[in-house]
Design a protein around this nucleic acid. Structure first.
Length: 725
DNA sequence: CGAAAGGCTCTTTTT
DNA sequence: GAGCCTTTCG
């Protein structure tokens, strides 16, 4: 019983309700995660339910990991057999295990957005259309939407009414056939095929139903129809299904998430108990009131009664700057100001924005001030070319039907296999009705008039590639993953290839980082290691690698910020056209989602909120002027420092502009000559060593490793580095 | 065949 | 401003 003593009465009720359907409507900061973890701990420790009979679905892998950590503490250990993960991760496991029954080869690879794009392009062409006339990305999103609602190709074609739908229908059909030929599934397939598996194989479903006595789903407001169906299938036996969500935080409708799932839940489970978590433990009264005033302007919602016992707290700061550069500069100088007052640490700040492009101006300001920051989406490690190349090799070694990977790697590093060679190979493979790789196999293993009609040079280069792959495939039978990795680099000459490039060093380091990731799978059996590794690298998201313990300011999109919290939050770009985004202007439902996005941002904050907007902003080269976001109008002036109520037509900021400029440190002092390996002294970070050095006009950009502090990118003119011996 | 240069189009958010 | 595609030249 002691497990639940730290919970308030509503939380406790939610945690104690273990049988039957349960809907928890949890406002921001209401201890939702606590309730879920404590509920699971209660099931295990008090009710004696085996962890193996519990499934918990989270929104990100990171959330799953954290929940597991917390549970380890609460249950003193034995959570290993718990099924916990995202819908996608859980479905992959199910399909590898049982997908064979609906014709899925367990060696399938998962196609990401980029792979999808090239496959859809092929599909469009094969269906006899022009990819320039029908944007592949649009077609992908229509197909994805269909899959999210478990609409098969046949069903799609049947219901298609417009000409466009007919086109998509035919492309959809081709696309699915291509996926099959490549033995690949896209993200949506992982979910849709699992639902199909359960539909078509009742005895398999029955096995899973019997296994999972308790199912919990977090972030339920952001589930789509296929996920809802899946939950419904699995919970069909015991009906012990607990879903947790907040309609006001639904921000993924563009990914086919459907708020109506909450209504469906109440309808499908009329006996469901509903628990409201309304006490907020996170934010000050001022912040909560600001958030409420923003969200209450939405028409299509039920009113809520969020409250907090926390103090009133600081007023909200609303700032208009002239440009986005000044906006960024304000953020950094304000952070530096608060840091000096010693109340807050670097990691306690977050800067949030609507679009990734906005991070650039921020980054530049952080670099200029030498203020450490971490960009959550920034690097997109797994989308880097060199990382994708190596993964494509590994993927192809795992599954030689994967022609998308084959086409990616066949001429990297350059082997003289160009477009013409490739089209000859394709034609020959098509005429024999075999895959590209089977064609290579035939070419290498047949003699006489069975030989392909290629000239000598082409046969030679293609054979060269084929032999490398064969050797690697053989290696995968007996080597550890890292062993295979190293063999791959050696046989392909990939390291030399990278190092011959201008930014080769950095790229090679990324490959080494990927190798470090691979090491985690090294203790698995040869074949298993590669399979698990590939699964892991395709299903990771940017937030998954986000580490809050790093001492740096967080730069993050509003979408990614969901579920996180920070003492101080800056939201930038509160402008008409940005937040709310221009794409939502003609659709009231989308506009409401923009508002929820703003609400999510504000409710991340514990102590202080800054809302910024710029008068002038550069978008795609040209400069635009935006008026302040309509969301700002909904904040009562008494909550805003200085009683902001819109600056009106005559923006005062133009006069202030000079003030901001004077705040920029002036380049005047001597700039030390530095080179890699030099030791330097920084007034704040102490002693460090120069890791890289870039000469700029009248300045220099250095990356310095400060022991115990971390790696920092600095501009010499601002960082005031001193060279030491 | 491949590197380099020039011209085009878009930009929301992502498992 | 960048990424993608096409064209051109070696």
């Amino acid at each position: 019983m002691d497990i639940l003593t730290t919970l308030n009465s509503a939380q406790r009720e939610a945690a104690e309700t273990i049988s039957g359907p349960l809907l928890i409507l949890a406002g921001p900061g209401s201890g939702k995660t606590r309730v879920i973890t404590h509920r699971i701990a209660y099931l295990i420790r008090v009710c004696g339910i085996s962890p193996r009979r519990i499934m918990a679905v989270t929104f990100t892998n990171k959330a799953a990991r954290e929940m597991e950590e917390r549970l380890k503490k609460l249950t003193s250990g034995f959570v290993r057999e718990l099924t916990i993960g995202t819908f996608h991760a859980i479905c992959v496991r199910i399909l590898r295990q049982d997908g064979g029954l609906i014709g899925i080869n367990p060696r399938f690879v998962i196609y990401d957005r980029e792979d999808q794009l090239s496959l859809v392009k092929t599909a469009i062409k094969e269906a006899g259309f022009d990819p320039k006339q029908y944007a592949p990305s649009v077609i992908i999103s229509v197909i994805s939407n269909a899959k999210s609602q478990v609409i098969s190709t046949q069903a799609f074609i049947k219901k298609g009414s417009s000409h466009f739908e007919e086109v998509v229908g035919r492309v959809y059909e081709k696309y699915q056939r291509l996926l099959e030929q490549n033995n690949a599934l896209d993200f949506d397939d992982l979910l849709m095929k699992t639902v199909q598996l359960f539909d078509e194989q009742p005895e398999v479903l029955d096995r899973y139903r019997k296994k999972y006595q308790h199912i919990m789903v977090d972030e339920f407001q952001d589930t789509n129809l296929v996920q809802y169906k899946l939950v419904k299938q699995l919970a069909g036996g015991y009906r012990n299904i607990c879903v947790v969500g907040d309609p006001d935080q639904s921000i993924y409708s563009w990914r086919s998430a459907d708020l109506r799932n909450i209504l469906s839940f109440e309808k499908d489970y009329p006996e469901a108990k509903i628990v409201l978590l309304e006490q907020n433990y996170r934010s000050t009264k001022a912040i909560l009131e600001t958030a409420s005033s923003i969200i209450s302007a939405n028409q299509d919602r039920k009113p809520t009664k969020l409250w907090t016992e926390n103090e009133q707290g600081e007023l909200i700061t609303v700032v208009e700057t002239y440009t986005q550069q000044e906006e960024a500069q304000y953020v950094v100088s304000e952070i530096e100001r608060l840091l000096e007052r010693d109340e807050v640490k670097l990691a306690e700040f977050a800067v949030m924005y609507r679009t990734n492009a906005q991070s650039r101006a921020l980054e530049e300001a952080f670099i200029r001030y030498g203020t450490p920051y971490k960009l959550v989406a920034g690097t997109r490690f797994y989308e880097r070319r060199e990382v994708k190349d190596v993964i494509a090799y590994l993927r192809f070694i795992h599954n030689q039907q994967d022609s998308i990977s084959l086409l990616r790697i066949i001429n990297i590093p350059q082997r003289g296999i160009g477009e013409r060679t490739l089209s000859q190979l394709k034609n020959w493979a098509n005429s024999l009705r075999v895959s590209l790789y089977q064609a290579l196999q035939l070419m290498a293993n047949t003699e006489g008039d069975k030989k392909p009609p290629f000239n000598h040079r082409i046969i030679k280069v293609l054979s060269g590639f084929y032999e490398i792959i064969e050797e690697l495939v053989a290696g995968n039978q007996k080597m550890s993953l890292v062993g295979l990795f190293d063999l791959l680099i050696k046989k392909t000459g990939y390291k030399e290839y990278l190092l011959s490039m201008i930014d080769g060093e950095e790229r090679w380091e990324n490959v080494l980082e990927l190798r470090t990731v691979a090491r985690q799978y090294d203790n698995l059996a040869p074949f298993e290691g590669l399979a698990t590794f590939l699964e892991g690298v395709t299903l990771v998201s940017d937030v998954d690698s986000y580490d809050e313990s790093v001492g740096a300011v967080t730069l993050i999109t509003l979408h990614q910020a969901k579920g996180l919290e920070f003492p101080v939050v800056f939201i930038v770009g509160l402008e008409e056209g940005i937040l709310p985004h221009i794409k939502s202007f003609d659709d009231p439902a989308q506009m409401e989602e923009e508002r929820r996005l703003c609400y999510v941002g504000v409710t991340r904050a514990k102590k202080r909120v800054y809302l910024l907007h710029a008068f002038r902003r550069n978008l795609m080269g040209s400069s635009t002027t935006n008026s302040p976001s309509r969301f700002l109008d909904d904040i009562p002036p008494q909550l805003v420092a200085g009683g902001y109520s819109g600056l009106g037509e005559e923006s005062q900021i133009r006069d202030k502009s000079a003030f901001w400029e004077s705040d920029i440190p002036v380049v005047s002092m001597d700039i030390p000559e530095l080179k890699v390996g030099d030791r330097v002294l920084h007034s704040q970070f102490g002693k460090g060593m120069v890791v890289s050095y870039h000469q700029l006009e009248g300045d220099g950009e250095v990356v310095v490793a400060f022991p115990g502090v971390g790696v920092k990118k600095l501009l010499l003119s601002f960082a005031r580095l001193e060279k030491v011996d």
